[in-house]
Amino acid sequence: MMKYYRPETVKKTLKLLGSQTEVCTPLYFPPRAKHLSQWQGDALIDLSNLGLDTIKEKSKEIAVGSMVSFETLAKSEIIHNRWDGVLSEAAHLSATGAMRNLSTVGGVLLNPNFPAEVILVFLALDAVVILLDENGKEVRIPIEAFLNDGKPTLERGMLIKEVILPIRKNIHCALERVSRSKSDGSIVSVVVKGELTQKTAHNVRIAVFGANPAPKRCHSAESYLSDKPFTYKLAESIEEKIQDETEAVGDYRGSAEYREAMAGVLTKRALISLKKMMKA
């Protein structure tokens, strides 16, 4: 018989998660909901009393708690006013309103593969995942390492505390996607971030979903763009570069060939949007 706990403190939670006698599963709801029977383990841990549902703005970073819902991400002014609203947009289109109220940052971190838009934004923003180990000590893991090519794991006894999103000046982001209909799941999505000066984009990040087995950054394309004058021609030339870094897996939503092509097209578009922001 499965048990259910709603601990009042992080310490108690960590103790439960580290139990050697029962496998305790933290209830991080992902945006793609699980049937209740799919939750594994001897006990479910409800994390709603731990105060992990806050968004804190500090001088150089924003800390988004692991229990922050997608609806909060979508509507929060702190989030909406940053990064050209891309994180809010990503959260909004990831699920219906009812599921946004239930889905959490922790949920998507542990289930990053579909829908992936919020994960793409985290990748593009060089997010850092803060875990708490069994002793309550913080462990910082860069998002790419945490995601582990689409197979993230949370070690026994550990808890996702929050995601840290660095704040820098002149950061701009763009999100592009293609799907069968406006609210259908993406076939391919791209998030691009750049720190923009008058003529150059620095620290460009390109995160792509749908053109590889898991959401990932396109490092070679990022290097290709860095420290060059950021022109429309440069943006348009990215299509081929992106396709060199894709290894799409075709499925019923889209063939590998289409996915790879769209990764290029959408990256180009996102970069052109960034370019227009530079002009602005």
């Binding site: 209830l27 909901a33 699980k34 049937h35 609806e71 219906t96 009812a98 599921m99 109220n101 239930l102």
Partner: peptide, 22 residues
């Protein structure tokens, strides 16, 4: 699977899909 909303209830004023919640 929480996707159709026909089971939705208001919990503390928030719309939630009750079919996927313990």
């Amino acid at each position: 699977t929480g996707e159709c909303g026909n089971c939705a209830v208001l919990m503390d004023g928030r719309l939630l899909p009750s079919c996927v919640m313990p």
